[in-house]
Simulated scan of single mutants.
Amino acid sequence: MINKTPLQVKSYSFALRIIKLNKYLLNKKKEFVISKQLLRSGTAIGALIKEAEFAQSNADYISKFSIALKEANETLYWLSLLKDSNEITNKEFNSIEPEISELIKLLVSSIKTLKSK
């Protein structure tokens, strides 16, 4: 991903991890419901950030980032639920949680910056 922002790079990388986690949950744990929700929300973050590239206005850009933030927060919820239901281990959760937390922080910061313009 040449000439991409850190947020674009991190959200894309995170989506790839979510896809791998989804495959693991389907194949090894036979977990189909939460894994589908996780896949949807975890990959939507980067898609919304990408979609914002062609926003029609600053308000549209903020809206796309705000929805991405909601998806990131939902993703953290699904990951926590998987951990607390023992579908993933604490080690697995602790491996991915810093990435989603960083995405949330970056999105919050970006939205604040965009709103101040």
Rank of each mutant, 00 (worst) to 15 (best):
residue 7 L to V: 13
residue 106 L to R: 14
residue 43 T to I: 04
residue 114 L to T: 08
residue 3 N to C: 15
residue 21 L to R: 08
residue 70 K to A: 02
residue 107 L to G: 06
residue 107 L to F: 13
residue 80 S to I: 11
residue 27 N to T: 08
residue 52 A to D: 03
residue 75 T to G: 12
residue 57 S to E: 04
residue 83 K to F: 06
residue 57 S to I: 08
residue 47 A to R: 05
residue 37 Q to H: 05
residue 49 I to K: 01
residue 37 Q to I: 00
residue 13 S to P: 08
residue 6 P to V: 08
residue 43 T to Q: 02
residue 114 L to Q: 13
residue 80 S to R: 12
residue 17 R to V: 02
residue 15 A to R: 12
residue 77 Y to W: 06
residue 76 L to H: 09
residue 82 L to K: 13
residue 17 R to N: 11
residue 23 K to V: 11
residue 114 L to V: 05
residue 37 Q to K: 03
residue 83 K to D: 04
residue 49 I to D: 02
residue 35 S to R: 05
residue 18 I to A: 00
residue 48 L to I: 00
residue 54 F to Y: 08
residue 20 K to E: 13
residue 109 S to E: 03
residue 11 S to T: 13
residue 51 E to T: 13
residue 5 T to A: 00
residue 67 I to T: 04
residue 18 I to M: 01
residue 61 Y to L: 10
residue 23 K to E: 12
residue 1 M to K: 13
residue 74 E to D: 14
residue 4 K to E: 07
residue 48 L to Q: 02
residue 59 A to H: 10
residue 113 T to F: 08
residue 19 I to G: 03
residue 14 F to L: 09
residue 77 Y to F: 03
residue 43 T to F: 04
residue 73 N to L: 04
residue 69 L to P: 04
residue 66 S to E: 06
residue 90 N to A: 10
residue 8 Q to S: 15
residue 102 E to Q: 09
residue 39 L to G: 02
residue 65 F to L: 13
residue 114 L to C: 11
residue 9 V to R: 12
residue 29 K to I: 07
residue 57 S to W: 06
residue 115 K to R: 12
residue 46 G to D: 03
residue 68 A to C: 07
residue 14 F to V: 05
residue 13 S to K: 14
residue 66 S to L: 00
residue 100 I to M: 07
residue 90 N to E: 14
residue 72 A to C: 00
residue 110 S to M: 10
residue 92 E to C: 09
residue 33 V to G: 11
residue 111 I to T: 13
residue 35 S to F: 05
residue 53 E to V: 06
residue 50 K to E: 04
residue 85 S to Y: 02
residue 3 N to E: 15
residue 85 S to A: 08
residue 91 K to H: 12
residue 8 Q to C: 10
residue 102 E to P: 01
residue 71 E to T: 06
residue 65 F to M: 15
residue 20 K to A: 12
residue 91 K to R: 15
residue 79 L to D: 03
residue 78 W to N: 01
residue 108 V to M: 09
residue 40 R to A: 05
residue 48 L to W: 01
residue 109 S to Y: 02
residue 97 E to L: 01
residue 83 K to Y: 07
residue 107 L to W: 11
residue 49 I to A: 06
residue 20 K to V: 09
residue 66 S to K: 11
residue 33 V to P: 04
residue 21 L to M: 09
residue 89 T to M: 05
residue 46 G to Y: 00
residue 19 I to S: 12
residue 20 K to Q: 15
residue 25 L to P: 07
residue 15 A to D: 11
residue 13 S to W: 09
residue 47 A to I: 08
residue 42 G to K: 15
residue 63 S to D: 07
residue 19 I to F: 05
residue 28 K to N: 07
residue 66 S to H: 04
residue 96 I to V: 03
residue 93 F to Y: 13
residue 25 L to C: 14
residue 49 I to H: 01
residue 79 L to Q: 02
residue 16 L to M: 08
residue 107 L to C: 10
